[in-house]
Every structure is written in C-alpha cells, then in structure tokens.
Write a protein that binds this DNA or RNA. Sequence first.
RNA 1: GGGCGCGUAGCUCAGCGGGAGAGCACCUCGUUGACAUCGAGGGGGUCACAGGUUCGAUCCCUGUCGCGCCCACCA
Length: 904
Amino acid sequence: MIEKNYQPADIEGRMSRIWEESGAFRAGRPERRDAKPFTIVIPPPNVTGSLHMGHALNNTLQDILCRLERMRGRDVLWQPGTDHAGIATQMVVERQLMERQEPGRRDMGRARFLERVWQWKAESGGVIVNQLKRLGASCDWSRERFTMDEGLSRAVIKVFVELHREGLIYKDKRLVNWDPKLLTAISDLEVQQVEVKGSLWYLRYPLEGKTFNPDDPSTFIVVATTRPETMLGDSAVAVHPEDERYAHLVGKHVILPLVGRKVPIVADEYSDPEKGSGAVKVTPAHDFNDFDVGRRHNLPQISVLDQEGRLALVDNEDYLRGLPEGSMQLAEELHGVDRFAARKHILARLEDFGFLERVEPNTHMVPHGDRSGVIIEPYLTDQWYVDAKTMAQPAIAAVRSGATSFVPKNWEKTYFEWMENIQPWCISRQLWWGHQIPAWYGPDGKVFVAETEEEAVSNALGYYAEQEVITPEQGREMALDPAKRAGFITRDEDVLDTWFSSALWPFSTLGWPDDDKDVKRYYPTDVLVTGFDIIFFWVARMMMMGIHFMQKERPAAPLEKVVPFPTVYIHALVRDEKGAKMSKSKGNVIDPLHLIDDYGADALRFTLAAMAAQGRDIKLAPQRVEGYRNFATKLWNACRFAEMNACVLPSGFDPTQVNETLNRWIAHETALATREVTEAIEAYRFNDAAGSIYRFVWNVYCDWYLELAKPVLMGEDSAAKSETRAMVAWARDEILKLLHPFMPFITEELWAVTAANPREDRTLLALTPWPTGEGLTDAAAEAEIGWVVDLVTAIRSVRAEMNIPPATLTPLVLAGASAETKGRAQRWNDVVKRMARLADISFADRAPEGAVQLLVRGEVATLPLKGLIDFSAERARLDKELARAEADIKRVDAKLANEKFVAN
RNA sequence: GGGCGCGUAGCUCAGCGGGAGAGCACCUCGUUGACAUCGAGGGGGUCACAGGUUCGAUCCCUGUCGCGCCCACCA
C-alpha cells in the first residue's frame, strides 16, 4: 500500500539501507562480469569538507549518468573517496588543539601530531561521505579510498621516484610563493590576485660621488615602488637600454638610502620607460621579475625577510655584505619587525632625509594565499618541482587529437591556454600532513631518492663508503641501526602538494601499482564530471600523470587507451544570488542538507539537474526546489490513483499489442519521452532531460492520460478496463524507470510498493533495464487523442474567457466535420462532454448563427452560446484571434511569394 | 593587459535562423475520493542598444553600453 502522504525523509532512509544491503552499486557484480564497464571517479572531496551546493550538483550529475548506465546493463564503477587536503586538514586539527588548550603542533612533535590527525580523520573524516549517501550517490562504497591510505601512498611514492629518475622532478633554489602565515611554499594556483588600493612611492636614490641634495636632480635617480621595505634587499637599479634620460648613468652606482650599500645602475629591457620614473629598483630575492633581471646581470640575491615576513638583518650575511662600516644601526632597529610595520618606519625615515619624492595612489594586484588570506611573499628557498612543461606536451596533444574532449567544447581553449604557458609546478610543502617526500640527504646535502628508506640508506651509505667519508664498518652499523645514522642521513621533512596525489586518482584508486586487474578493466574511465574551477588544479594534472604512467603500462596502446578519460564534462558553478562563488569565508553558502531536510533529496537533485544547462552558472532559488518537491508529490499521488484502481502489470504484458486508442496513445507518448530523456542525458543536456520527463509525467500522463482513462476504469467494458489497468501500470513503471536517475529514492520506493505481488521479490529499480521505446510509435493514436486534447483545451479556454460558470453545460456543434472527426466525436462523446462541460455534441454543415467558433486541428467547432455570452468580449477575443491569423497569413504569404524561400 | 560568458515575462532561467517558452509570483474560476504540495483558464516581453549578413535575425557577424568570471610578475 502506498502511504497517503509523501514523506521523503522516511523513504530516503529506508532506500539507502536497501541499496547498501543489496550491494546494488558494487562494481564487478557476478552477473555483469561480461558486461561493458562504465567508470567514473568521483572528484574526491576534502575529508574536512561538508557537502556544499557544488558537491550536490557535481554528484547529482554523476549519479544520473551512473544510474542510467547501470540500468542499461553496464558494469558500473563509480569510484568514491576523499582527499587528505594537506593544509586544510592540518589547520583543522591545529585549531582543535588550540580550542582544547592542548600543546601545539610543534610542542607535540611530528609523530604525535600525525597520530592526532589520523585520530581526527577516524572520528570526523566520514561526514562528507555520509552526506553524499544522503544525496543518493550510487558509488561503490565498498571501494572507498583515501589519498593517504596505504595503496595510494605507494602510488604517490612510486610516481615521485620514477619522475625524479626521469629528470621530470627536480630540486631547485628559486623564488616561490611563500605563505608567511602557514609557513609553507604554495603553487601558483593557490595564489589569488586581489586588487588592493595602495600607493606608489617615488624614492630618490643618491648617485655615488655626488653630494645628495633633494633639490638637485643631478645628484640622484628616482625609482618608483609599491614595496619600499624591500629596498633593503636592492642590488641594482635598472633603466631601459634605450632610455636617453638615463643613458649617462648606466654603469654608475647609487648608494642605497638609509642602508649605505653601493649598487650598480644597469641597463635592462625589463625596465619600462613609461612606468613610474622609468628607473626601477631591482630586488632579486623579493620579486619574480627582479629575480630574472638579477640573473641576467649576475646580481646578488639579498633576502631581507624571514619565514614569517619579518625583517631579518642582524646575522644576515647577504644583507651585511658590502655594507659600509658603522651602518648597523638600521639593521638593529628594524630586525624582527614585521614587513608592513617596517614599511612605515622606512618611509618615515626616507622622508626625514628627503629621499621620498612623492606618493601616488595606486591600485594594483597583490597576491594572497587562498587558504590563509595573507599577502604572499616571493621568497628564496629550495623546493621540489615538477617539469610541467615537458609533461604537458602529451596532455595537450591528447586534447588536440580528440582523445579527450571537453563538454562544452569552449573549455578546451582555457585548457590549452594554461597548458601552453605552464610553469614549473612547486610540489613541496612545509607541512606535516601529507605524503612525505621520499628523499634523504647525506652530510654534504647530496640527495638520495628511493621508494623505501632501506634503499635510500643503502644507496647513501654505499656512496659515502666509496667516497671514504665513512668506513665500511660504520656503514654496516648505520644500515642496521637508525639511531646510529641519525644526523648523518636525514629524510626530507617536506610533504607533497595534495594535488600531487589527486593527480593519480584515476589509476591509483584502481589498485595501481600493486594490482593491475582493475586498471585493465576500468581504465580509462568513461567521463570526468567536474567544475571549471579545478581544470588546472586537477584535470590538467590527471591528464599529465595519467598519460605518462599508463603509457608505460600500455606501450603499444593508442592515446585513447591511455588518457584518464575521453570526456570531461564541465558543469556550472553554483553561485550565490549576486553571482559570487559560494565560500565558507564569505558566509554565502546555501546548505544543501537543509534543502534535503525541507524538500527531500529527490527534489534537490531534480532542481539541480533541471538547472544544469551548459555554459551558464546556477544562481539557485530555493523556491525551485519546492516546485520540484510538488512534482514528486504529484507522481506519488498518480501512483496512488493507479493503485486504488487496481492497476497492476500482468506478467508477460506487451504494450505493443494494446487495442484501445487511448492506450496506444500513451504508449506512443511514452516512447517519445523515452527517446527525449535518453538522448538528452547522453548529450549531457541534463536540463532538457529533466524537462522532458517533467512534462511527460505531469502534462501528459497525469493531466490527460489518467483523466481520459477514468471513464474506462469506472466503466462496464471489462476488456477495455483490464487493458487500461495494465497500461496505466505499464506507463507508470516506465515513468519510474525514466525518472529514477533523477529521483532515485521516491521511484525506488514506488517501484517496490507497486509490485504486482509485494511478497515476491521484484528486482530493484536501480538494476531494472532502461526502456528503449521501440515499437510503440503510433501516429493514428496521436492524431485521435491529440484531437480530443486540443478540442477540450480550446473549449475550456473559451468558457473561461466568456466567464461561463462551470455549472452551465453548453452544446457543441461540429461544423462540416469529416467522417474521421465524426467518428472521433462519437467515440469520445462522453469524455469530451464531461471534460469540457458540454450538454451534447452534434453536427451541422455550417456554423450556427451567434456561435463561438474554434479551430481544432483544421476543422471548425462551434459553441452556440447565444444568450450566455458577452458579445463585446467575444468580439474582442475574435479580433485578437483575427489579428493573429492575419499576421500569420501575411507572414506565410510573404514567404511563399519569395522565390528564395520556395527554393529552399 | 589577455581570455571566456551573460544581458529574453515582476523574479530565477530555458530556447537560439522561419509561429516568443518554463517554474515561481500575479489575476479569474473551481472543494462529488489520486493530488489544494491540487485542477481549469488568463494577463504580462520593440528577446540590452546600434549597424551588418540573409528572402527572413531573439538566434549569425561587427561595434557600443552594462554585468560576471578566469588568467597575467609589470615598478
């Protein structure tokens, strides 16, 4: 029995359990061993995360695809899992320690801290997984993976070691984006450029050998800067080689104000005569451009900041080098002062001595850490890099050749743009939570990279024994006893960027490198579904890693068998009402779980699918969700109606063999809807698919089929009645199937409850074959029922416009009706009379006088309403109709009169 | 500075070379058992603006205005 009211919460809980227990979503089910696989890897959410609208949309779309293919008989693997999210997770646990007033990370040490993170993960890391289950995601949860679990960690280590051996991973000392709050390097992608209203300061740098006089421009050169505090690290002033204003100064020197260091004036193309004063200070250790200028002119790199962005001057050999005697005062004064406080201080001092010429307001882009929010500091450190430029080449080729394509296609442009200008990828992070880099250092800093500590140690000890740094005896002792080699051989402290492990996701989750069975069966995956915000972070890197490593597995295979996915479906971003990206920090997040609580997961899913038009972002209106909850209720009640009328599907029922026109019509319409829904999903037009099934259920099945079936179901014709009962049930079942990918819970529930015999096991709807609609098209049935629908609609419209009370029954006269129409009118006499509130239906050669005329499928139907109608209203209606008809005629005449149109 | 996209009914959005659509909101009417989370009907839009291509443009092209996003080391 179907419950009286639709209660999403009850159903969703129950169905989740049934799916879980039945193993319906398991990949590799025995009966599908010979079926073609269909694979999607989930974009792994952060373990720290909770479900937001982006997840809800992303996973709804994946689930629609997976459920469709599962019903089509494919062996579906939707691979779930989570990402360890290095920085985010470490921050969460550190915050927790602080809240509980426990010792901080550094106090407890690396090992104990990591234990705490794992403990946190065990306790609260599963939140998002449960939320995905609430959404109805039909992942194979038995195969859930985590980027830090053992197998995936082995994949990470292997990839690192192999790329290092191939020279595609290397260590380099250069400027990185340094986060002075999190105290780690971050990649270019983790830097957000933010427009900041700042100032441009024009500074006078005195020329060597002249007596500085603020009023005499010949005694100094002016440089403009947005970062005056970095002047302590200046090692040159650059002017353009062709800038005549400064030509005579090239090769001369300036004395850095306050500092006293002598630095050269160099000619370099980087300097733009149009900008600032045309002369630019060069600070190779604190600016990416200056770094390059410095290399070209062999300038010293003077780093004047420490990790936390404070001035580090005392004990700073680079800074002190070349400083004249007795100029330590400034260093002592500013040592340990934060970069922004130092800026103020330095500006004040410059002004005191006349070195500050002027200040201009200046709006410019300033790099910020996307996690910490603080201003990023270009900082000179040793870091590990991936040679992304080399690895990008095959990944570019794969998209160029069509081995992988983006949907919608225009995202390929974005992909190419970035890939063709890709920079080395900084992969080391000064964090604890993550995959520790498998590199060990000897006493001279020589690096040994290996998959295991044993191997690295053995290599290192062998090397140092050979170099006679240690004796063979010492080597043997150190090999056996970690305590003995402590301090001699040390492991790299750093961990890898979280995206490094995510990049391996399409094959590491399948068991690579330990077991190739699933890689063979399920790789490449069939489609990747994601938002455009992580094309660079994730998609591009999966392409690089996937192609590189799977090419090794399949040396002879074409690119199509090596890329991680043939299709990348890029969906919309769910934005807030202002069109801004939803983010926790902005506090503009709509919680999908609240919507699920209020309207049910099915309603939320349907809303997202219906709004997932390609190429446009979604600004979600919660009212839409309510509307689709009503849709679910409508379906619920239609099924109750069927149940109340004893509509059950007889076994062996064949919908192509029905006799009743009405039943042939609904078969026809069902086939139409089936095709529309199937084709739309296949083309990733989720909104069209949702629209088709919505219209079919509500406006075809409920509004017309069930209404027209009512008289039959209550009538005396037992043959027609039993056929119609079967057909009501059949069409209902087809609806449940077509709707299942969108609304899995309610459809699975109704499928179970409406089984012919509830005690006998009906296969889960999730595993029931998807309809094809074959053999059901029926133009004759469409013509007949279509006529009924159009006639009733037209009459209702006129009656409403004429304000004819429902209680008033009016006659209908069909003027000059064809034999066909007469037949239809006789067959549908009762139905039309009831639905259109008619007294009777009759025929005439021509329209009676004073009758309202309606055009229905090319013939005239009239309502003799003399005495009932307001003639002026009717005249207005007819005028309007006439105008429309005349416009139509004019348009059509124009077209027909047009040779070129006729020619077409 | 480059790139992408958007401006269609009051709101949120589909459509995209030949008759302007949906949901919600609004108005009118309707409570005899599927559903008031409903039913029947209705009003409402020079499809941002200006040119061009075409027999024909909301749809293609160019430009303008407005809005959004992404990328970029420019003092």
